[in-house]
């Protein structure tokens, strides 16, 4: 890229890249391979990298015998509720933050950064006590509430960026044409905000889906456990033969985030609003 790189230099670069690929890739390959191995290959003295007789048995087993199916449904419920609620709550506020000058915007961003600094122990005990007081400890509703609050500062920041990208001229033009404020919001702002709403909902969905600490502490009934907690409990029950279903469940637990990342990469670079206002 910058000037010429010598042949030796190039070789070293490729060697380094190969090192990175092995470090990053092999654990993933191992997870995939374990998920598709039949029980006999899992207890083999010297396991192979690629399963000789791949099977989908582990996936079936993970979701029937090991109650990971129910945990996945729990996670799905909690994450969907968090995503919908976060967007509903964040939408009006993000519009206000983007369209009106206010110190609250800076405060919200400041809170995002500041809240990173505090270990969850400080938050979890009072939150646990509050939820118990209002009867929401050990319920999905309580967990959803915490997830929404936890996702909100970042969601606000994200969504108000999307609102800012909608040219104010479009709104002004619509109101000059006689549209009421509500009509402007419904006909002009919401349709253009759709990508932002989807992105925010996905962000909130994923942070709820991946979350472990709050779910571990706030939900005690095993039947209500979310997927990460159920997987972590499953680890406790060790034994080589059970590694297959464990790997299969882990693999499925990763899928939503992978889809999210693939989606975000395309959406954020699409720039669908570029042509709305001409120079």
């Amino acid at each position: 890229m910058f000037g010429k790189t010598s042949r030796v230099g190039r070789t070293l670069q490729y060697l380094a890249l190969a090192g990175y690929l092995i470090f990053l890739g092999f654990p993933l390959v191992w997870l995939l391979s374990t998920a598709f191995k039949p029980p006999r290959e899992l207890v083999q003295l010297h396991p192979s990298l690629i399963p000789t007789n791949p099977t989908t048995q582990n996936f079936v087993q993970a979701f029937t015998e090991q109650e990971l199916g129910r945990a996945a449904l729990n996670s799905l419920q909690v994450s969907l509720a968090s995503a919908v609620l976060t967007v509903l709550v964040a939408m009006p506020a993000s519009y206000a933050l983007a369209r009106f000058r206010s110190k609250l915007g800076t405060a919200a961003l400041g809170w995002v950064l500041l809240s990173q600094l505090f270990p969850f122990v400080l938050l979890i005990i009072p939150i646990f006590l509050i939820l118990r007081q209002v009867g929401l400890a050990n319920t999905h509703a309580g967990l959803v509430l915490i997830y929404v609050v936890w996702a909100l500062p970042f969601a606000l920041w994200m969504l108000q960026g999307f609102v800012r990208n909608i040219p104010r001229e479009l709104e002004e033009a619509a109101s000059v044409d006689g549209a009421t404020r509500l009509q402007v919001l419904r006909r002009v702002v919401f349709p253009l905000l759709a990508p932002g709403i989807v992105a925010t909902a996905l962000f909130s969905f994923i942070s709820a889906w991946n979350e472990f600490f709050f779910a571990l502490v706030l939900v005690k009934t095993p039947e209500l456990a979310t997927l990460p907690v159920a997987l972590a409990r499953f680890v406790g029950i060790e034994g080589t033969a059970r590694l297959g279903p464990l790997a299969a469940g882990s693999l499925l637990a990763t899928l939503p985030s992978l889809i999210f990342f693939a989606f975000m990469q395309r959406r954020l670079s699409s720039g669908s609003l570029a042509g709305a206002v001409k120079g």
Partner: peptide, 22 residues
Amino acid sequence: VPWAMPPVVVGILWKLVYHPDA
């Protein structure tokens, strides 16, 4: 990819890599 994985899954993944027998 590792960024997209839930921390619990990363833990399980490496438990499999470090497993003494398998």
